[in-house]
Amino acid sequence: MFFSIIIPLYNRPQEIDELLATLCVQTYTQFEVVVIEDGSSLTAKEIVNSYADKLDIKYFFKPNGGQGFARNYGFERAKGDYFVIFDSDCLIPHDYLETVKDYLFDHHLDAYGGPDAAHESFTPVQKAISYGMTSVFTTGGIRGNEKHVGQFHPRSFNMGVSRAVWEKVGGFILTRLGEDIEYSIRIHQHGFKIGLIPGAKVFHKRRTSMFQFYKQIHFFGRARINIYKHFPSELKLVHFFPAVFTLGVIALLVLNVFYPPLAYFGNIFLLVYFMLIFFHSLVLNKSLKVAFLSIISSFIQLTAYGLGFIQDFFKRIVLKKQ
């Protein structure tokens, strides 16, 4: 099996350098790398070319169109049996491709997704953000997990599709706002088999500050409504949970100001919830600082998603604006 690794890139030369370094030590070597610079002003051409003697690598520059269409550009130029999509802010374990190859030979999948985790080199903030996006105490915990409501939808930071999928389904038709979920739904609709490869883990850096993380997750909340506009049946009760949590927090703040006795049980609930997050993160990360920051990242994960969801639910569904 020959893999084509597709990496869209926008103004992140340092990240692609670190990612390509991890690909140089893969135990399975039957792969090429296709880097698509999506209209960057800060290009990585020299960095990518510096790996020409270490990797089978191609570099392309195109006008900015967004990550979904940049991936399509890479698909069109790839020669692999299977296309593997990574975000530029990922680090890849040395046995990743071997794990995927072995799994695909034993279990037929036309498309797959894998989980993400924090690398030991990540900053405390990055580790806390990773916790917020993978914890069982947030809706981030349903990602990278087949055991949740509805179909499994791979996420494009760690996703693979066969050439057969590309030839029959085509590529991304959205470039942002839930483009990977929309693509997964169409793959399902064409009768292809999608599954999780539990061992195909990547280390995903995500954002370097809580403010950047907030903006990203707010965008994800809006993206869920965008998916609903394409596929109404894909809006599940679980997707409303962050919005309900956010409205509950707002109501609790109002009660604490104007009628504190009614806020008593809500305050106790939040305190217990934050304590569970703190000790769970402490066990996983073995760091008091990361455990404390995990409370903040988990709170942001729910409220930022909830606010984005509420914003576009009201605008695009209630007011019916495009």
Rank of each mutant, 00 (worst) to 15 (best):
F2L: 11
I5G: 02
N11G: 09
Q14L: 05
V25G: 05
T27K: 06
Y28G: 06
Q30G: 12
E32C: 07
V35F: 00
V35Q: 00
V35P: 00
I36S: 01
S41P: 03
L42T: 10
L42H: 06
T43R: 15
N49D: 12
N49K: 14
S50P: 08
D53F: 11
K54E: 11
I57C: 02
K58T: 06
F60K: 00
F60A: 01
K62I: 15
Q67K: 15
F69W: 13
E76W: 02
D81T: 05
D87G: 10
D89M: 06
D89W: 10
C90I: 04
L91N: 00
V100M: 08
K101R: 15
D110R: 06
H119I: 00
P124E: 04
K127E: 13
K127G: 00
A128V: 07
M133Y: 13
H153R: 14
S156D: 07
V165R: 00
V165S: 04
G171T: 01
I173E: 08
D180V: 09
I187F: 06
G195K: 08
P198Y: 03
K205M: 13
T208W: 04
F213K: 02
Y214N: 14
Q216V: 09
Q216C: 02
F219M: 12
R222M: 14
H230G: 12
H230F: 07
S233F: 12
E234R: 14
V238N: 09
H239E: 12
V249C: 14
I250F: 15
L252A: 15
V254M: 13
F265V: 07
I268V: 13
I268K: 07
L270A: 06
Y273K: 10
M275F: 13
L276T: 15
L282P: 05
N285T: 14
I295R: 06
S298T: 07
I300Y: 01
T303L: 05
A304P: 09
G308V: 05
L319G: 00
Q322F: 13
